[in-house]
């Protein structure tokens, strides 16, 4: 049988090429790009094994798994809180191509690991208008006094379930959206942001 490989294809084709959307004069006040080339794995601790999992992760990654909505990162692997006894791990696909299997081999006793690499679309949003645009669809206070780098929230954006986290003070936010909803999410984001001018740069 022929050896077939599946082609990686974005759920949001509009994010795969450079473009300027909406207001054309002046610098774009919203910058959007899809984050690609990442391994994304969801983690759910087995019943009563959360403590053992956290101990094993600490040994392996030199990291404390967060028990509050936070993101921690060490050695190129980020762990995000994703609900009680649940997390999402994100890392470079080139370094960890089979990250779920890697985690199962090392930590399978304590938790279940599910590859989400083709199930979630990660969209990075930055620029001076980012808070204002996000506020049109996300019912959370993202003011720096309430939401800071490495804070994580599970919520919805324009009625679409998302995980949102902040990665720097510029500010830069990342949304993880179910792949099937990613284009609806983009529809909302591009409509809400066009008044400010959106710069789309292809994924990194």
């Amino acid at each position: 049988m022929a050896n077939r490989t599946l082609e990686l294809r974005s759920a949001v084709p509009e994010l795969s090429r450079n473009s300027r959307i909406g207001r054309q004069d002046g610098p774009a006040r919203l910058v959007v790009s899809e984050m690609t080339g990442l391994s994304v794995v969801s983690i759910a601790a087995r019943k009563g094994q959360s403590g053992s999992l956290q101990g094993a992760v600490k040994k392996l990654f030199k990291i404390e798994l967060p028990n509050t909505p936070r993101r921690v990162e060490a050695g190129g692997v980020a762990f995000l809180w994703a609900g009680p006894d649940q997390w999402i791990a994100i890392t470079d696909m080139a370094v960890h191509p089979d990250f779920d299997r890697e985690l199962v081999a090392k930590l399978g006793k304590f938790a279940s690991f599910t590859d989400q690499g083709d199930a979630r679309t990660l969209i990075r949003v930055s620029g001076p208008a980012s808070r204002e645009v996000i506020a049109t669809g996300v019912p959370l206070d993202l003011h720096p006094r309430a939401f800071q780098p490495d804070d994580v929230a599970l919520t919805h954006a324009s009625h679409i379930a998302v995980t949102i986290w902040q990665i720097d003070e510029e500010p830069t936010f990342v949304f993880a959206v179910a792949r099937g909803f990613a284009r609806s999410f983009w529809h909302w984001l591009s409509d809400s942001g066009s008044v400010h001018g959106i710069e789309v740069s292809p994924g990194t």
């Binding site: 509050t68 909505p69 009680p84 019912p139 599970l154 919520t155 919805h156």
Partner: peptide
Amino acid sequence: PHCGNRSLDE
């Protein structure tokens, strides 16, 4: 208790 103060629609 996990996420903080949230709106009813969640």
